[in-house]
Design a protein around this nucleic acid. Structure first.
Lengths: 233, 233
DNA sequence: GCTATTATTTAGGCATGTCTAAATATTATA
DNA sequence: TATAATATTTAGACATGCCTAAATAATAGC
């Protein structure tokens, strides 16, 4: 079996790869909150073990083997989150940390039994797609709230799985399924003014609006957008 | 939080204490399958952290703090085993290893939610008592099969939670609730000949008969008996 | 194109938990 | 009780994964 560190590095690298052009030593260090020197060491080990290809200053790329393991960890994470909500009645915005630890210790059998218990779900409680058993992770076709134009509206389909974000939106009383309409966008700081369910009006920061995903009424082109931050599972 | 090693040492010491008079460095090393030198090191750390009192050649004793943590780990282990059986349909003799890993990572909240989900059970799937939330572990009043006399019979209430034993009894097709009657006992090796549910006849080794516990029809005195082996949770 | 900034690696450490081999202490036995 | 057997500890290593400080390499800006 692989160990926790390996799984964590590969998971973070997998997500970084969707966020930035080059997954460099420093970007990994920043994301994981550790020193670059430590990352250098681990990159050597992961490369040695066939999970990565590395070119200094250019960055790392996951090998098929590395990507497979990363996606497997994400699958376990999302299945566990779903299970905690469904079987144990956890609030959907409180499952992240528990899953973060459990994802490294459950057996294949437990993974399978959870999947079965849940009826082979396609999405987790945040609206994130659950990778299939054979390692396929669906690409999202949803738009971040930050890309909706003024006057557009839609329903929240996914909210990035980050503890601080979920805490925040939890306090705002919005969740998956909530309908939002964009009333205004502030050029200065990129914040968005939205009307919630035709009632309350909220101001969401650029950061938040980047991580809240909408199925728009007028579903339009998806623009490849680079943001940053420690979202995802 | 405490770490896995600390929890494992304390758990093993707790059980050893019920099995042998003196929990020595060597007995811990043997039980855990590691070297005595390693145990010496860890005893120092655990003593330093207030979990143990140690006297060379005499052995270790858990402090109240150490015993509390050991029992807490046992509680988590047994709740997890129960949960895997009840919620995920695991076979009762296949949950040990999974629980062995999960017991070190679940949160207090998860422990509580599992307990609640199960309806605050008093016993796990092997018939072992689950320690209460405030750290009380019931003493068993059951008799090991090895102590029944010829002609006595009873029902299996508990089978020690050891992977190899459970594997063995699983193949023999006996489980909690099975009625056994003692037909003969072999003086030479301590083995027991039992009739199962008035049908099949089985020969059980001394080792197995020590770890299968019976509620006898003629419930009699409990004799403090010392056995050995890596049973328990 | 050179210098300043930034990124990366190396060197040397530390903590954890394990090992083997050798030294030392204790207990058991003849 | 002396010696043999056993238990324990010490010494020196190793792997993992992290650190800081210093050295080196690359990129960016003037």
């Amino acid at each position: 079996m692989t160990n926790k560190s390996t799984e964590d590095y590969l998971k973070h690298i997998f997500w970084l790869n969707r966020l930035v052009e080059k997954v460099t030593t420093k970007s990994i260090a920043d994301r994981m909150g550790i020193s670059s020197a430590s990352v250098t060491d681990m990159i050597k080990k992961l490369t040695h073990n066939g999970y990565l290809i590395y070119e200094p200053y250019y960055g790392v790329k996951l090998t098929p083997r590395g990507e497979k393991l990363a996606i497997h960890v994400i699958r376990r994470h999302r299945l566990i989150e779903s299970f905690l909500v469904t079987a144990l009645g956890y609030a959907w915005d409180k499952v992240h940390d528990e899953a973060e630890r459990l994802e490294h210790v459950i057996s294949e059998e437990m993974e399978f039994r959870i999947d079965q218990f849940l009826g082979y779900p396609k999405f987790d409680p945040h609206g994130d797609p659950i990778p299939s058993q054979d390692g396929v992770l669906e690409e999202s076709t949803l738009l971040p709230l930050s890309q909706l134009d003024i006057g557009e509206s839609g329903i929240i389909q996914r909210i990035s799985d980050s503890t601080s974000l979920l805490n925040y939106v939890g306090r705002l009383d919005i969740a998956l399924g909530t309908r939002l309409a964009v009333e205004a966008k502030e050029v200065f700081d990129g914040s968005t003014k939205v009307k919630v369910d035709n009632k309350k009006v909220l101001h969401l920061s650029r950061d938040a609006a980047d991580q809240i995903f909408i199925k728009s009424n007028s579903q339009k082109k998806i623009i490849k957008k680079k943001n940053r931050g420690k979202e995802n599972a």
